[in-house]
Amino acid sequence: MSAAPLRVLGIESSCDETGVALVELPEGVAGAAAPRLLAHALHSQIDMHQAYGGVVPELASRDHIRRVVPLLRETLAGAGLGLEAVDVVAHTRGPGLAGALLVGTGAACALAMALDRPVLGVHHLEGHLLSPFLSVDPPEFPFVALLVSGGHTQLMRVDGVGRYALLGETIDDAAGEAFDKSAKMLGLGYPGGPALARLAEQGHPQAYRLPRPLLRGDLLDFSFAGLKTAVWTQLAKIDAGEDTAGDGHAQERADLAASTQAAIVEVLVAKSLLALKQTGLKRLVVAGGVGANRQLRADLDAQCRRRGVRVHYPELHLCTDNGAMIALAAAMRLQSGQAEARRQYDFDVRPRWDLASV
């Protein structure tokens, strides 16, 4: 007789997205069945923060307060279930903005206490790392993971749930920051990464030879601060030049955007391939917001195909921060015995939290 299904509600509020989701383990904690997403709802604060050119933490926290209950109702309605169907409440404990984390954590603990259900705090990056397990092509352990989410760029060896070894990480700016800061210099606004990628489609990626920091050698660490400086220097030269076309140097700016994206993607691809070579693994997982970049996916797919390496991504709608990845990470931790949900409702958050220590 199979075990009863286990349903985990996940709440994400680490930065500028509020997400709620319900994930089910069909055979409960003791089973081996893959988790499945029953429903999820997401609200992005992009429109609110655009006027400021970036995330305003206090505004983000207040907006999470307004959104979490309506999103909870939307998720339960989408799953066709009531609150009584929730077995565990999971939340993002960190890393992230302290005030934003407190909103989601407080809501999760209050809900769990009201329902007399156990609660479990989840590492935000572990959610991203495991999110491809909800895709149509889920990975298998072990694999190398490229985590490119906001201020984080890391390569991890992943041997199982909770079994993570850091291979390399950024020593200054992350890839996402390089995208966003370069976009801001180009006057593209917020969020910068997707805007720069769109402009890059109109440019020539070899127009400007920008630096690829730490590309040579056997190091798996990243550095993008020098690239940001080079973009600023080249943009100053463009703006100082004669505008013969009378279009505000539109083509030169598109070329610079394309060259910037090419530099970031080349480094990410090269470091990922080096990590695969050093570990001897033949499976790569790419997760986080930058993982949605089409050029990165195309180049990784091509290079890994030549080497007989399988590449796995989360579905595009799950690349951004979302509640599904938090519910999934909690479910997989419970299923693997790496965590125990408890009926303890006093809470704290961890704005800084090393994934390798989880």
Rank of each mutant, 00 (worst) to 15 (best):
D63C: 10
E17P: 03
V89Q: 07
P118S: 09
I65T: 15
L220C: 06
T229M: 14
R157I: 09
D255M: 03
P5H: 07
A39P: 00
M156I: 02
A145K: 02
A230S: 08
A197R: 09
A230D: 15
R306C: 00
I65Y: 05
M1H: 09
A60S: 00
A302P: 11
L81M: 15
S223E: 13
K228G: 06
A250C: 12
E340R: 11
R67A: 13
L300Y: 01
A250H: 06
A324G: 06
G31V: 07
Q234N: 06
L355E: 10
T279R: 01
P351N: 00
L6S: 06
G193F: 10
A197M: 13
L22R: 02
A77D: 08
I171C: 06
D63P: 14
H43G: 02
R310I: 13
A258F: 13
V161C: 04
A30F: 02
A30E: 03
Q202H: 05
S14P: 04
Q335D: 11
N322A: 03
L83A: 12
D301V: 00
P118T: 14
L256P: 03
R117D: 08
L274S: 02
V8Q: 04
P57C: 15
D159I: 03
G150F: 00
A250Q: 13
V158R: 09
A250W: 03
L125M: 15
G99L: 09
G323N: 08
A327K: 04
V286H: 15
G121S: 15
A51C: 01
V103N: 01
Q202M: 11
R209W: 10
D348R: 06
G99N: 14
A145E: 11
A324V: 14
V358E: 03
L155Y: 05
T153C: 07
L273E: 05
S182N: 01
A77C: 14
W232P: 01
F133C: 11
R342T: 07
T260L: 09
V349L: 11
C109V: 14
A39L: 04
G10K: 01
L188R: 05
L147W: 11
H152F: 03
S2V: 12
L130A: 04
G80D: 08
